[in-house]
Computed example of a mutant assay.
Amino acid sequence: MNFSSALRQLSQVQKPARGAPFYARFVNRPVGRVLAATAHRMGLSPNHVTAVSALATFAAIAAILACPPSYALGRWVTLALLLGFALDSADGQLARLTRSASPSGEWMDHVVDCAKLLGIHAAVLISFYRFFELPRTVMLLAPVGFQFAAVLLFFGGTLTDQLKRRGSEVSAGLRPRSSAVRVMALLPVDYGLLCLTFLFLGNQKIFCGLYVTLLAAHVLLVPAFLAKWFRELYRRPAEESAGRL
């Protein structure tokens, strides 16, 4: 299969758009599609792509905690994080293209995703402590809170998806379509937006302001997501029973 054919087939095996925020949907998935087609031509497996994604992401995380903040560092970190994010999309697309999806591959993907969320905020905490002139010491709690909210959001969403799979054939027709309002509303919890904030790593005030703003958005949205997921799962037995009648 050549590159163009792989791209065409990949466009037909995309995940549903519902639930995907702006950057992930309109930037990351298309870039990931190109990377998946490239990986297919190179003979790489989805696990290989996941491993390269992890290397790019954790190289950026190591740079955040080890190097003094600067605009040059911020550009490099942003590029590496976004590359890792795109490859994180590419591995799943490649698995669907080659019909090689497996529990071990999904496990590896989720473990890397969880590790990067833990790592990126831990790196920001260390960078704050080592290099930043924070107005107040309490600012050191911001990465801790952000890490908690981000991991909780990731785990809650992943677990909800896993539980929904049990009755996916019944509920497939019950899923509402994604809307432009929903896509934009999810932007504050878009990992791609977090990556882009590192472009301002050279200006401590701007970076801290953006980081705290995203933290505040997570604090507001995480309870809403948890309540929504609980309601969906709570109603699910009734919906599945209705679907079997």
Rank of each mutant, 00 (worst) to 15 (best):
V111L: 15
P135V: 05
T160P: 04
R165A: 15
T213V: 11
G173Y: 09
V189E: 06
E169A: 13
A149P: 00
C195P: 01
K116I: 09
K205W: 06
A142G: 01
A142N: 02
I126W: 10
L201S: 11
K164V: 07
G119F: 09
L141V: 04
V144H: 01
Y191C: 02
C208Q: 13
V212A: 14
A150C: 11
V189K: 04
G156D: 10
L117E: 11
L152Q: 08
M184H: 05
G156T: 09
A115P: 01
L186M: 13
V181T: 12
T197A: 13
A123F: 00
T197F: 04
F154K: 12
L194I: 10
L215S: 05
C114H: 09
M139W: 15
V138Y: 00
V151P: 03
G167D: 13
Y129F: 10
V144C: 01
G145P: 02
P135I: 05
G173N: 08
R136S: 12
V151S: 06
S102W: 03
F132S: 13
L141Y: 03
V181Y: 05
L152K: 01
V181K: 12
V144Q: 01
L199M: 09
L214W: 00
N203Q: 12
L117W: 06
F198K: 10
L134R: 07
L194K: 03
W107S: 13
L210T: 01
F155G: 06
S171H: 10
F148V: 14
I120V: 15
C208A: 15
